[in-house]
Design a protein around this nucleic acid. Structure first.
Lengths: 180, 180
DNA sequence: GTGAATTTTCAGAAATTATTGAAAATTGTA
DNA sequence: TACAATTTTCAATAATTTCTGAAAATTCAC
């Protein structure tokens, strides 16, 4: 199976962006192939389309599975593993955010938490103040994100479209309470 | 100036996380030093505290400035440049998100946009459907984020604390309109 | 304008990360 | 169980990224 010409642009781009999204060039390209190809693809097809080694494909697939972005699919009478996206584009995006939070926020939060546990948590120290501030911010972000993540996609879309609308409501509410 | 012992943990951690946050180990460590130190610090102090070369510090500072995370500060009678955070923790966090959107979302969005411009935008093709879906998702995310970013920190905090509260309101609203 | 203080640049070196491909392990079928 | 198909592993190598430090550029006080 050859890489279809109309996919080339996206494969190249997803490759370039890959490292910014948290994986590497090859893994990004593999994701592009899997997302933009209607039929599930197998490892040999991916290796051929991207001209990379079979071993590299194997590692990349493991990575994409650890991100829960792809799923195995079996075809009757074929022992090969075929891969397809683990959900809709919307679900994949949420999944990427979720994994990134796990990798980018959670470790820091747990360090800050343990730091605040230590009783020598001297509030006079500037650094301790900052630790507290970052901790509270990340904690707020995390609970907010959990909330959001639990919402069904349609409500979430509606909420996002509302955007500053919600903000305006809150601003008005605030102005009123300040006048009291 | 020596690296204060109580900062060591954070410097090491910010270093490890650096690459996940979009810069490299050294730049992460430099950010930690600047954020956790009350007094503005100069390039030589950073180089000494982190035991890295003066040239490396210069490049790192440029990077942090390109992210708009730090600002120059001048002391009277001292020609050296001193550096301090460009804002509160909250503002720095928003700034990181903002820069990352610029680097991680905008390039993809502009590719997808140009792809949809091309008239051979054949809706029968599976790949084109996906292009459209990703485009719409990123567009929605971008306008939402712009909205959010314009809000004042206090309203934003309130909104985040509300979290699923807003979601519940929307869910109820939806259930009602479905019954009609 | 001169020159010392300071910052920036960048070629080469070091460190890190990604890739290959052959061997080992696993899986499924007969 | 035997064996062929398939996947995974991992040591060696290749590619990329980061770092150093000396030289060049800039800045500013006199």
């Amino acid at each position: 199976m050859e890489l279809p010409a109309e996919l080339e642009t996206f494969v190249v781009h997803f490759g370039e962006m890959g490292s910014r999204w948290g994986f590497n060039r090859t893994v990004g390209q593999m994701l592009a192939v899997i997302v933009f190809t209607e039929e599930p693809v197998n490892a040999d097809q991916i290796a051929n389309m991207l001209s990379i080694s079979r071993g590299n494909v194997s590692m990349g697939l493991k990575e994409l599975q650890s991100w829960q972005l792809i799923r195995v699919h079996h075809k009757p009478g074929d022992r090969k593993d075929y891969f397809k996206p683990a959900g809709s584009i919307w679900e994949l995006a949420l999944q990427v955010l979720s994994e990134r939070r796990k990798r980018e926020v959670d470790p820091t939060l747990s360090l800050l938490r343990s730091q605040l546990m230590n009783d020598h948590n001297d509030e006079r120290h500037y650094a301790n103040e900052k630790v507290r501030e970052i901790h509270d911010l990340l904690e707020l972000f995390n609970t907010w994100f959990d909330d959001i993540h639990r919402m069904n996609p349609e409500s979430l879309k509606t909420l996002m479209k509302l955007g500053s609308g919600v903000g305006k409501v809150l601003d008005i509410k605030e102005k009123i309470s300040r006048k009291k």
